[in-house]
Design a protein around this nucleic acid. Sequence first.
DNA 1: GCGACAGTGCCACTGAGTGGCATTAGCTGT
DNA 2: ACAGCTAATGCCACTCAGTGGCACTGTCGC
Lengths: 206, 206
Amino acid sequence: MSDDLRELPLRERKKLRTRRALAETALRLFTERGYDATTLDDLCDAVEVSKRTFFRNYRSKEDVALAADSDLWSAYLDRVAAARLDGPLLEALRVALDATLEAMDADWERRFLATRELSESVPVLQAHSLGYCQDTTRAMVETLAGRSGAGVDDSRLRLTVEIFVAAWRTACLRWTAQGGEGGRDGLTRLIEQTFALIPDALTCTA
Amino acid sequence: MSDDLRELPLRERKKLRTRRALAETALRLFTERGYDATTLDDLCDAVEVSKRTFFRNYRSKEDVALAADSDLWSAYLDRVAAARLDGPLLEALRVALDATLEAMDADWERRFLATRELSESVPVLQAHSLGYCQDTTRAMVETLAGRSGAGVDDSRLRLTVEIFVAAWRTACLRWTAQGGEGGRDGLTRLIEQTFALIPDALTCTA
DNA sequence: GCGACAGTGCCACTGAGTGGCATTAGCTGT
DNA sequence: ACAGCTAATGCCACTCAGTGGCACTGTCGC
């Protein structure tokens, strides 16, 4: 995820470069000119690849815009699958998230903030981004359920994961609203604060 | 929402009939042939309407598939805006949801179940449906925040609403998984059960 | 060097969604 | 009943996202 892995087959390296150039340029163009105003032809022209090649790297226009999201979720899934996760589940999930954020590429932070800002101003990206969350929760529930035997209460598990995502999204929104203040450490702090708010949120009155 | 309102201007009635025919036929075709395999031309042919007219009634192909969702959320928003909502917010939101479900059209139940099943098997619909939830939560937060003065803690409010949606979605998933057993009463019971699970979900261990 | 083959470019195609303009059909007034 | 107004519709041409097919080229294993 983070290293360039100079010691890859030449072909792989080239392909990876193209992938990154696409994501990078897409983010720039979408931010500068707007998402709808930028066509895939524009993007492919800028990166000097054919549209066909674009679609071999990304499944859709939304996908390339949300590459930073995807990176985070896939790293997070890996971590959850590998971690032991003892103690209260909700807390364990949060800790795993902290660790994942910590381990992300330095460049990722910038990309992620830009992606969040983009996604909040473009409805179709927002929906697609929520789709990622959903897929990730589904996968997490499967991982977790498989681990503690098949007979575990799936609904409670799913609810836990959904609440986790609810808190994550709320924290993310706050982070973006304040312009990504404090970088990923700021985000981590907001996540902590937001999780701490949960008991209050359950009982607060209108 | 529920009555045909025979006492509308003829033009309005006709337009409404077209709208309903589109949603109804779309749901049938999508279910029978599959969402991707059904083109908008197919749908327009079946309803005997031009594609241009379709797009004057629905914003997109996803929109018409999720018309039942949209009906629910818009009714729910109305109710939340009108209700007093005293006591614990989360509980008040749930009660309002019960009441909204109760008040929906008899036909709506069938459409809604079909819509849920469709949405769970078609990723793009799932994402779009999550987008609806998101828009609704945003609107609800604005309504609620506006009501209790501007100075209220927005984050806590948003978190509450997000948790509400998390529980709703979990309940919905369970309901769909058991084939909509018990109709809307069954769904209401599942919602109650799921909300009751929340404290457990916060503390349960992996 | 020399095949094998992954990755790419090019081209033609489908289908979603939009803009423009002429036409229809429902609501006026007289 | 008739003519005029206007909302709603139909029709046509267009853009752009996304796909399939096939020829080509650069990389890898021998």
